[in-house]
Design a protein around this nucleic acid. Structure first.
Length: 803
RNA sequence: GCCGAUGUGGUGAAACUGGUAAACACGCACGACUCAAACUCGUGUGCCGAAAGGUUUGUGGGUUCGAGUCCCACCAUCGGCACCA
């Protein structure tokens, strides 16, 4: 029996003492940078999802290392965050206390399943030596005009008492605590991610990422090409700007709609006859939560502004102006031209309020239209544009509008600027000083890191100020520019800040002069493969691409895209098919699994559960099977080891196995790599003795998956050798040995399988046909039939087609 | 509604550019070992059938000598986005 308890500990100690996985910059060797998302060190400890990602990255790293690459593979802690802060509030202890305890536990747990991280490169986002550079990047972004402060309606979580970025709001709720998010007008810091919208879309095309991630990011950015059109307001010099992708339908416009929040509304106050009613409506809408407002099943509501009209400058027609809740202030111009004949939302609204529906587009070759036709077509009743196709009309109309100064081409995005400040304690302080005279003044670089000061109370104030605002001695400073009275920015950065650039710091983690040296960055960037979870598709992956691009433009990083290849894993569900959670009491703790089965069994089991990207449920009986597998491998070492050359069949299977496992690792098909190991093992188990060389090669193939077992076995079989198996070369398969000597040929008559024969490899049709015709079952089906043709595929099948 | 993905045994699944569907594993059944159970080992295991044989990749159609794989239509499940003008 394989004694996992002592053997695994023994080798973990060996790796630690010998720094087996230490990586240095070495320009004589080709680098390979493997990365897995670094965890938030929660109180719950490592869960099996972490194990899945970290085992996968480890398999890849070990495989590449054995293939001669200089592999960078490191681990760290994304340690700022709310749970530590909430713990601090409850226990009146510094959040760092809790954080460091958790990190200790995470480090122990991760080391206990043996991943090959270079622990000398460990980083912690809450370490001032690390966040010094997070703050430094903020200063660069500020310098570049990419960090700015503005007053705007923001997402506010009433329970976390902080603002949230759009990316942190899921279905109108806070992604962390599920509370319904409110809109609040606040002066806040934003990062201008929208400047990079096009680059973030266009640069996706060269990345080796799953298509669904690319599509998700594109949809999130939501680029849409259209036009901005001005409508005049009767008896007023004010104008209404609208955004539309369908300028070709403008002759069907029968009203325009403003969002209730549109500032123009207030300006029209004097002209609106039913102002009191209108104002009441706006107030009612503003009191509704976003969740209620965006509920699609809700009936649209609105109110007409009596006494004023908008003028469509394409035909000088006067149309009514409405305020309605189906128009969003946050997208486009906060106003739309409504064309009920060609837009379903406008159609629904027009029917409810009895507004005219005017057709401007007909489907091609049709005289009549459906009630609401939303596709492209041919223009009718559209003045000089009548008869044009939608596509052409859009161009001509924009041209006319540009000449007349009332329309222009415009591209809109769903992506909003990144709300970057948090009204909480446990985050990086924003290195800005607010001076009444000079405005926002960055602190000088040599004052970094701006340390997070101690406070007595970590409780967020709830008024939109962070707990830092209560420390007068920290807040009140002199303006670095004019020397006058000034105050520090008291908001902190969001958790996403530290994780937006950590992959750069692994490259040069102890550098106190630079974020990382140019030489090291040039050598190691980009990340060659990045493992992680699906939940970061439109958050962390987008944010860190943005930061990297900004740093690239500033000449700080050498590549514009940080992650060449991205691999995402599927969820591991509990045995009952539910999500693992404390609430259901169905959580699998890796510590328990390792104690019972060993680290290698856990690693192989998790990789064997199914395709890496699929969701699958934990199964105790299946993990027992992997325990058997590991014990059987161990039992090989109890056979007689010979120096006699192995038989041809064994070598053939061995070399096929080398090929398959290598290809499967490259393709992230770990479960099929493992089944190939099982096939080869089953073959070896039928043998009385085992050739040393064959066994040694087999062990090498196991290294990425079962490093502990492999170390021990290799030493047992080759006692004269010292050192870790991790430094052995990956076996190379011999294509001559992969060739089969015999081939099994399927014999079909009219496409139906009738028999099977074994022939020499590469036998030609004549030989095979003769043999096939002699088989009784084939004869039976050929009797009395006329031959039509014969299909022959070498080494595969022969199909005799008869009539 | 839009976008994406997926449908194969009792279960997780495999199948390279169209070429013997179900590899590998779990489970189950029977047998060996055991006083007994567990472990372990052996045999069997898509479905129908005693067998010969027939039949099977969500459903219906098509292309082909041949379709899990390609084409058309539909159904179901999961994930993401969602009044984005």
């Amino acid at each position: 029996m394989y004694d996992h308890k002592t053997i695994e500990k023994k080798w973990q100690k060996y790796w630690e003492e010998n720094k087996t996985y230490k990586t240095e910059t070495d320009s004589n060797k080709e680098k390979f940078y493997t990365l897995v998302e670094f965890p938030y060190p929660s109180g719950a400890g490592v869960h099996v999802g972490h194990v899945k990602g970290q085992t996968a990255v480890d398999i890849f790293a070990r495989y590449k290392r054995m293939n001669g690459y200089n592999v960078l593979n490191a681990m760290g802690w994304d340690a700022f965050g709310l749970p530590a802060e909430n713990f601090a509030i409850k226990n009146k202890k510094h959040p760092n206390h809790f954080t460091q305890e958790n990190i200790k536990n995470f480090r122990r747990q991760i080391k206990s399943f043996g991943p090959s991280f270079d622990w000398d490169r460990e980083i912690d986002t809450t370490d001032p030596k690390y966040y010094k550079w997070t703050q430094w990047i903020f200063l660069k972004l500020f310098e570049m005009g990419l960090a700015y402060e503005k007053e705007a309606p923001i997402n506010w979580c009433p329970s976390c008492k902080t603002g949230l970025a759009n990316e942190e709001v899921i279905d109108g709720k806070c992604e962390r605590c599920d509370s319904v998010v409110e809109q609040k007008n606040m002066k806040q810091w934003f990062l201008k991610i929208t400047n990079y919208a096009d680059k973030l879309i266009n640069d996706l095309k060269d990345l080796n990422w799953p298509e669904y991630i690319k599509t998700s990011q594109k949809n999130w950015i939501g680029r849409s090409e259209g036009a901005e059109i001005k409508f005049d307001i009767e008896n007023s010099d004010k104008k209404i700007n609208v955004f539309t992708t369908r300028i070709d339908t403008i002759f069907g416009c029968t009203y325009v709609v403003l969002a209730p929040e549109n500032i123009l509304v207030e300006g029209l106050k004097n002209k609106v006859k039913n102002w009191e009613e209108v104002n009441g409506y706006i107030k009612k809408i503003k009191n509704k939560s976003d969740l209620e407002r965006t509920d699609l099943n809700k009936e649209k509501s609105g109110i007409k502004l009596d006494g004023i009209k908008a003028i469509n400058l394409f035909n000088q027609e006067k149309v009514d102006i409405f305020i309605a809740d189906y128009v969003l202030s946050s997208y486009g111009t906060g106003a739309v031209m409504a064309v009920p004949a060609h837009d379903e939302r406008d159609f629904e609204f027009a029917q409810k309020y009895n507004i005219e529906i005017k057709t401007a587009i007909l489907p091609e070759n049709k005289k009549e239209s459906e009630t609401c036709y939303t596709e492209d077509g041919v223009l009718i009743d559209s003045g000089e544009f009548t008869g044009l196709q939608s596509l052409e009309a859009r161009e001509k109309m924009v041209e006319k509008g540009e000449r007349g100064g009332f329309a222009k081409k415009k591209i809109n995005y769903k992506l909003r600027d990144w709300l970057f400040s948090r009204q909480r304690y446990w985050g990086e302080p924003i290195p800005i000083i607010k001076c009444l005279v000079c405005g926002n003044v960055p602190i000088s670089e040599n004052e970094l890191p701006l340390l997070l000061p101690e406070v007595e109370n970590y409780e967020p104030s709830g008024t939109g100020e962070s707990p830092l605002s209560k420390i007068d001695s920290w807040v009140n400073v002199k303006c670095p520019k004019c020397g006058g009275e000034a105050k520090r920015e008291t908001n902190t950065m969001p958790q996403w800040a530290g994780s937006s650039w950590y992959f750069l710091r692994y490259i040069d983690p102890h550098n106190d002069k630079e974020l990382a040296s140019q030489d090291n960055l040039k050598y190691f960037m980009p990340v060659d493969v990045y493992f992680g979870g699906a939940e970061h598709t439109t958050v962390h992956l987008l944010y860190s691409r943005f930061w990297n691009k900004a740093l690239y433009e500033k000449g700080i990083v050498p590549v514009s895209e940080p992650y060449k290849r991205r691999v995402q894993h599927g969820l591991i569900l509990a045995e009952d098919g539910k999500k693992m959670s404390k609430r259901w009491g169905n959580v699998i703790n890796p510590d328990d699994v390792i104690a019972e089965y060993g680290a290698d069994v856990m690693r192989v089991y998790i990789m064997f559960m199914g395709p890496y990207g699929d969701t699958s449920a934990w199964s105790t009986s299946a993990i027992n099977g992997i325990g058997r597998f590991i014990n059987k491998i161990w039992s090989l070492s109890e056979k007689e080891i010979t120096e006699e050359e192995a038989d041809r069949e064994t070598l053939n299977l061995l070399h096929k196995t080398i090929k398959k496992i290598g290809e499967d690792i490259e393709n992230i098909s770990f479960h099929t790599a493992i089944s190939q190991m099982m096939i080869f093992l089953n073959h070896l188990l039928t043998k009385k003795d085992i050739n040393r060389n064959v066994f040694s090669i087999f062990i090498k193939l196991l290294v990425p998956f079962t490093p502990h077992l492999s170390e021990e076995l290799y030493q047992k079989i080759n006692p004269e050798r010292v050192g870790s198996v991790c430094n052995l070369d990956w076996p190379i398969y011999d294509s001559n040995l992969i060739k089969d000597e015999k081939a099994k040929i399927a014999i079909q008559v009219n496409g139906k399988l009738r028999d099977e024969i074994e022939v020499d490899f590469d036998s030609d049709q004549k030989v095979v046909e003769e043999l096939a015709r002699e088989r009784s079952n084939v004869k039976k089906h050929l009797e009395g039939k006329e031959l039509v043709k014969i299909i022959f595929i070498k080494n595969k099948l022969i199909n005799i087609v008869v009539r």
